[in-house]
Design a protein around this nucleic acid. Structure first.
Length: 307
DNA sequence: GGCCAGGGGATTA
DNA sequence: TAATCCCATGGC
């Protein structure tokens, strides 16, 4: 796994991937953009810095400087085996809204992140905003994660383990500024640790339905959070997490009643199918970018008013 | 099924 | 500065 020496891995011919789109589309919270345009992040027990060698995009050399020297581990994490070109073609078919959404962030890939980290991160995410979520997680890692030091003196913290968080009380978590979510996390950690995380570790071989049932029984996890965990850590690409942004996209751009959650899920199932989750990422990011991208359109949508 | 509190930072008015 | 919003859930 991770040594304390950084080593460079170069992957050639990478397409349909842009670190800016992928690390800044709201699926991950521990990647930070550096001054030179590269991205640094902690993944599991290792740390990495990622950029395109020539600053290019499609087909160019992707450089990963990391103490996890396994190229296949990074291929898996960045989901580089999957044909996003084909997926985008499928989704774009007869859908001008999706076409625009994909054009806004054509380099999104769904990262294959850690199950426990995603479970906790998305409990934290509820009714919050991305800068604040990132801060809470950063504090949690510094307080309760393991400290790692590289040969060059650089240090970083991995995400706290299930065992560690399961032993904490709600009060111990106060330092993370989680608000009422502290209780959910303390309880969920104990629930998942009931079988030492055995069920969670088998998640990818369990059906989406059974997995969803398990997650919905955990404290602080409802349908939206469960879907995010399944999408970002368990390769359940058909789920369609509906948050306030997606609710507005589906209402303003697809004409579905704002409170008709069921109708939105049915639409996604029928039109986005097994790539519902990937479609959701394009749409979510499109809406977040819209004020800059298309100010007039954004204004006309009256995003802050109920329809 | 609808309503509302939960904490607290970010954003907008 | 005040008001509102935010990658929702749980409990009534």
């Amino acid at each position: 796994m991770a040594s304390n020496e950084l080593k460079k891995i170069v992957i050639e011919g990478v397409q349909d991937f842009d670190p800016d789109d992928t690390f800044d589309c709201g699926q991950c919270f521990r990647w930070n953009k550096q001054e030179d345009g590269s991205w640094s992040g902690v993944v599991g027990e290792s740390i990495a810095n990622i950029k395109f060698e020539d600053g290019g995009f499609a087909g160019s050399k992707l450089t990963i400087l990391s103490n996890n020297h396994s190229e296949s581990a990074w291929m898996d994490y960045l989901d580089l085996h999957r044909d996003y070109g084909g997926i985008k073609e499928d989704l774009t078919d007869n859908d001008p809204v999706m076409s625009d959404a994909i054009s806004a962030s054509p380099g999104i890939r769904i990262l294959h992140q850690d199950k426990w980290e995603m479970l906790v991160s998305f409990i934290i995410s509820q009714n919050s905003n991305i800068p604040r979520i990132r801060k809470c997680i950063e504090i949690m890692c510094e307080e309760f994660g393991e400290e790692h030091e590289l040969a060059n003196g650089q240090y970083y913290y991995s995400f706290p383990t299930l065992e560690t968080l399961a032993e904490l009380r709600e009060d111990d978590l106060r330092v993370c500024r989680l608000g009422y979510r502290a209780k959910y996390i303390a309880e969920a950690a104990r629930q998942v640790n009931y079988d030492q995380g055995a069920f969670l570790s088998t998640a990818e071989s369990v059906s989406t339905e059974e997995l969803e049932n398990y997650l919905l029984n955990l404290s602080g996890i409802g349908p939206k959070v469960a879907n995010c965990i399944m999408l970002f850590a368990m390769r359940k690409y058909e789920v369609f997490p509906v948050d306030v942004w997606i609710r507005r996209v589906m209402n303003r751009l697809y004409g579905i009643r704002e409170n008709d959650l069921k109708g939105m899920l049915e639409y996604a199932k029928e039109h986005f199918g097994r790539y519902g989750g990937i479609a959701q990422q394009y749409l979510f990011n499109y809406m977040r970018k819209l004020p800059e991208l298309k100010p007039a359109l954004y204004k006309s949508l009256k995003m802050n008013k109920e329809f």
